[in-house]
């Protein structure tokens, strides 16, 4: 069976006055059918650009995007075929809905664009989708401004499910929601995972959230993946100093002294002129001269998962939860 998504050496370089901005710089990643892959990284790491490439909003400048085993023409000429393969849910629940369309029209829109069903069949389908995402039928004729944030996000999810795509890209879909509503949406997502067998590419800056929904986690820094592997393995046995810094920055964890030593100083370097060699070396506590010369490849020599670091053998692993490290 083909992967739901295969990215091969994906590159997105934008021309700027100061030189090429390498938003995504050589990412190879695959998502199996029904699998959830979490992509975690901070703002400016290129995760959103990557998501936009997957759904065809951005055109990669190098590498390829394959959906369900077939390569999609760069430039997204075949928008209709693409739409059946992959759909997307966005961060801002208000901005992702047309303020002039009711719940019914928003969810019906993909069906109408693809000419699916008669008017009555479509209404039936809309009601079924609403039930699936936990929206009562009384919300059918409401406008977005009459819905709560969580309800709006459910409408977005229903719209994305309407075409029954094999892959759903979720870009920071809970970060604009309150904690209690965030839990509702995350639970809905895990329910949909088990019921529908859709593959998810789940993008977030929050490692705890990513770990909760994902089978595998990929950590991105300055346009490249620095650590990738089974979700529990990355969470409990992280080896890349950047992943460790992310874990050490989780506020509950940040109190202990070991964590404070691993936290980062300084800011993200500009992606227009990234550091030579390993792009993380300017903030890395383990950096040596080799790191400035040779860019480390993502590899898994004798490790449970892949890490892009020259000195991975010397770095002790860090568990997000010390008491579960052995489990």
């Amino acid at each position: 069976m083909h992967s739901a998504l295969e990215l091969d050496d994906l590159r997105v370089h934008h021309a700027t006055a100061a030189g090429p901005l390498k938003a995504v710089d050589g990412v190879t990643l695959s998502v199996a059918p029904g699998e959830t892959v979490g992509l975690v990284g901070e703002s400016g790491c290129g995760k959103s650009t990557l998501a936009r490439c997957v759904v065809g909003l951005n055109t990669p400048t190098g590498g390829s995007v394959r959906l369900g085993g077939s390569e999609i023409a760069a430039g997204g000429r075949d928008r209709v075929a693409w739409a059946r393969m992959v759909q997307m849910i966005f961060q801002d629940p208000m901005g992702s809905l047309n303020p002039r369309l009711t719940t019914r029209h928003t969810i019906e829109l993909p069906l109408r664009v693809h000419g699916i069903g008669s008017k009555n069949e479509r209404l039936e389908r809309v009601l079924r989708l609403m039930e699936q995402v936990g929206l009562g039928p009384h919300l059918l004729d409401r406008y977005p401004h009459e819905l709560s944030g969580g309800q709006r996000q459910r409408v977005s999810i229903a719209r994305a499910l309407a075409l029954e795509p094999a892959l759903l890209v979720c870009d920071e879909i809970v970060s604009a929601l309150d904690v209690s509503v965030q839990a509702q949406v995350l639970n809905l997502l895990t329910d949909l995972q088990s019921k529908l067998g859709i593959a998810f590419l789940f993008i977030s800056h929050d490692l705890s959230v990513v770990r909760y929904v994902s089978d595998r986690i990929a950590v991105m820094y300055l346009g490249r993946i620095v650590e990738e592997g089974d979700s529990e393995s990355v969470w409990n046995h992280s080896r890349h100093p950047y992943t460790q810094a992310l874990i050490a920055s989780i506020p509950e964890r940040a109190r202990d002294e070991k964590a404070q030593r691993l936290q980062l100083s300084g800011d993200l370097p500009s992606p227009v002129n990234p550091p030579s060699g390993c792009s993380f070396r300017t903030r890395c506590p383990y950096a040596r001269p080799l790191c400035a010369e040779v860019r480390p490849e993502l590899k898994s020599d004798g490790l449970p998962h892949s890490v892009a670091c020259h000195f991975v053998a010397e770095i002790p692993e860090l568990a997000a939860r010390p008491e579960y490290a052995e489990a």
């Binding site: 759904v55 065809g56 909003l57 928008r79 209709v80 075929a81 693409w82 739409a83 059946r84 992959v86 759909q87 997307m88 966005f90 901005g95 992702s96 809905l97 047309n98 829109l109 993909p110 664009v113 693809h114 977005s156 719209r159 994305a160 309407a162 075409l163």
Partner: peptide, 9 residues
């Protein structure tokens, strides 16, 4: 919502 329209084809 405009991006979503492009994504639904």
């Amino acid at each position: 919502f405009v991006h979503a329209c492009r994504i639904i084809g």
